[in-house]
Nucleic acid binder design. Structure first.
Length: 563
RNA sequence: GUGCCUGUAGCUCAGCAGGAUAGAGCAACGGCCUUCUAAGCCGUGGGUCAGGGGUUCGAAUCCCUUCAGGCACGCCA
């Protein structure tokens, strides 16, 4: 229930719209002062009265409603005290409904999300965790908001590195070894190629020729290329499954090979193309940007050219309302350029293309480099996290059922959560120790709280459905009030997270909710109470149970029923 | 050099379409399990919100500026 809306609808101030009043009502930091507050200072000039007078007047004219217990005018603030019995009654009823938190604001609109976008034959390392986890969560958040969502894995499946890989395979590759070793085995020969290449430029030349053969459709070249692709996808799909991430399209770079020329033609016909040092560019100087490179001096297309073709393809195919690119902030300029070129081409939908940038992942030990083979494989990080979870289960709850399943959920959840708990723009120095810390503001803490609510609900049996009038007066403590308020916020938190493309808003909220519940749990016996007082507490427990499960699912994280 | 991003407790971060006394977690120290899961809860200490100026009744939040760190800036993606 939107308390601010109820309050603002009861307030009338000359020359100020209801929406403006709504926006000005804040939650009060100090609960002694009330639950919600309207500062009246800004109205002083227009009304030619002091804020103190205005607050007094508003207090007098406030019609009153069930939810408000008391209104006070204090030092120019109009403070509202909410009646928690009434609030708890309606909030807990809402929270028990099936689709609590869902919305239909996106109904009939399609959002494309380009995320994860891995490279073929390259390791899935912790650097890919950010885009995969953020994109995967946005996918679910936007669906929850009613949008049709298209998840696109823009595969990096084009470029001279595939020529290199073929050369490396012919020289040092072993079919069986690679079938078994997968991407890691491919990486080995790739890294070797780069070492050898430094002293033997002939290799570089050979690689170039092989890549040209792929382009020309040479049978053997395509066959090997397809094989590398299969190996990679097979392996990566296992990780996606663990991360609860899905895609609707794997149209990658190679897919756009035959779709760039029409875009280039259009650019030419609109007079946007310039030739500079033999390369074709779009000059963006008047917009304060360096030029967007379209075609190299040797005639080859570039990254930006493919992104332009992809943008058109997505618009034509999906008629998107928004098209998101979950890509690290290193590429800020690139996307600014591409979007500007789309705009210069006269596409009003250019404004709907949004670069959802996120921070860098670095290692405490130094930078990652695929070529040097200095990477932290995500599958290994997931495995260590699961291993750690197993150890802790062994220490704390050796009698637990389905230990392996629970450990998987806890371990993988911890890793995903580490990528989603902070604002996405923040850089991350990856530390396994930190990911493996299971105490405090962590995913295991949320899962533990969920398991705790499960335990209470199971022990309560059918009491929650007893035909006895619940006594909501039993939720008057500060802890209860705090908890009810947070439960009430869930739908707006999802809306906010979806609107800002920021899953961390949800992560932070879930931590707050779990903290509030744990305080409530410690401070209030639930099952010892008589039924009429027990039921509201079970409602609250049930709401927390559902929200944590649903909220974590929106982050791509599973919950164990017990732990 | 230019543009963008970041700077809040020892560490990691919330708070930033301005509102009342700046909040969590980790780490440290001290408490709470014969009672619903102690992966929990309570308490203690810890702050020039990077520095300076400005706007405002009011600034961590907006503007200017300086400093520090990161990223990007033509033929990689």
């Amino acid at each position: 229930m939107d308390v601010k809306k109820i309050l603002s609808s009861q307030l009338n101030i000359d020359g100020v719209s209801q929406d403006e009043i709504y926006a000005m009502i804040t939650e009060t930091a100090n609960s002694d002062l009330g639950d919600f507050s309207l500062p009246c200072f800004r109205f002083a000039k227009a009304l030619k009265k002091s804020p103190v007078q205005i607050a007094e007047q508003l207090k007098e004219s406030f019609g009153g409603c069930q939810i408000v217990k008391e209104v006070r005018a204090v030092n120019g603030y109009l403070n509202f005290f909410v009646d928690n019995t009434v609030l708890a009654y309606s909030v807990l009823a809402e929270a028990r409904q099936e689709n609590f938190g869902a919305s239909e604001v996106g109904k009939g609109k399609t959002v494309c999300i380009d995320y994860s976008s891995i490279n073929i034959a390259k390791p899935f390392h912790i650097g890919h965790l950010g885009t995969t986890a953020i994109g995967g969560s946005l996918y679910k958040l936007l669906k929850k908001q009613g949008y049709d969502v298209v998840g696109i894995n823009h595969l990096g499946d084009w470029g001279t590195q595939f020529g290199k890989l073929i050369v490396a395979y012919d020289l040092w590759g072993d079919k069986e070894k690679i079938e078994q070793g997968g991407v890691e085995a491919l990486q080995e020969i790739y890294v070797k190629f780069h070492r050898e290449e430094e002293t033997n430029p002939e290799l570089t030349e050979q690689a170039r020729r092989w890549f040209a053969k792929i382009e020309q459709g040479d049978e053997r070249a395509l066959q090997l290329f397809g094989w590398f692709k299969d190996i990679t996808l097979k392996e990566v799909n296992k990780i996606y499954k663990r991360l609860n991430v899905t895609f609707d399209s794997y149209a990658g770079e190679s897919f756009y090979n035959d779709k760039m020329q029409p875009v280039l033609d259009e650019l030419e016909s609109k007079g946007l193309v310039k030739v500079s040092d033999g390369a074709k560019i779009v000059d963006l100087e008047e917009y304060g940007m360096s030029p967007c490179l379209l075609v190299k001096a040797d005639g080859a297309t570039l990254y930006a050219t493919r992104d332009l073709a992809a943008a058109y393809y997505r618009k034509n195919t999906y008629d998107f309302y928004k098209s998101l690119y979950v890509v690290a902030y290193q590429q800020n300029l690139h996307f600014k350029q591409v979007f500007k070129v789309l705009e210069l081409l006269g596409n009003d939908w250019a404004k709907d293309c949004i670069h959802v940038a996120y921070g860098m992942v670095s290692l405490a030990e130094g930078s990652m480099s695929t070529r040097k083979g200095n990477v932290v494989w995500l599958s290994k990080v997931l495995d260590s996290a699961v291993e750690k979870a197993k150890q802790i289960i062994h220490d704390k709850n050796p009698a637990l059922k389905d230990k392996d399943d629970v450990a998987e959920k806890i371990g993988v959840g911890a890793v995903i959560f580490s990528a989603l708990q902070n604002a996405r723009i923040k850089d991350i120095t990856f530390s396994l120790d930190k990911v493996l810390n299971f105490e405090g503001e962590t995913c295991p803490y949320l899962q533990y709280t969920y398991a705790r609510t499960n335990s209470v609900l199971n022990k309560a049996g059918n009491a929650i459905n007893a035909r006895i009038a619940p006594d909501f007066d039993s939720l008057q403590s500060d802890e209860s009030k705090q908890l009810v308020k947070l439960i009430n916020k869930y739908p707006s938190v999802i809306a906010d997270a979806a609107e800002k493309y920021e899953p961390s808003i949800l992560s932070k909220y879930l931590i707050d909710l779990a903290q509030a519940y744990n305080k409530f749990y410690i401070g209030h016996r639930i099952l010892d109470e008589e039924l009429s007082r027990q039921i509201p507490r079970l409602y609250a427990t049930d709401a927390v149970n559902k929200i944590i499960k649903d909220g974590l699912a929106l982050l791509g994280i599973d919950v164990p029923e017990q732990m």
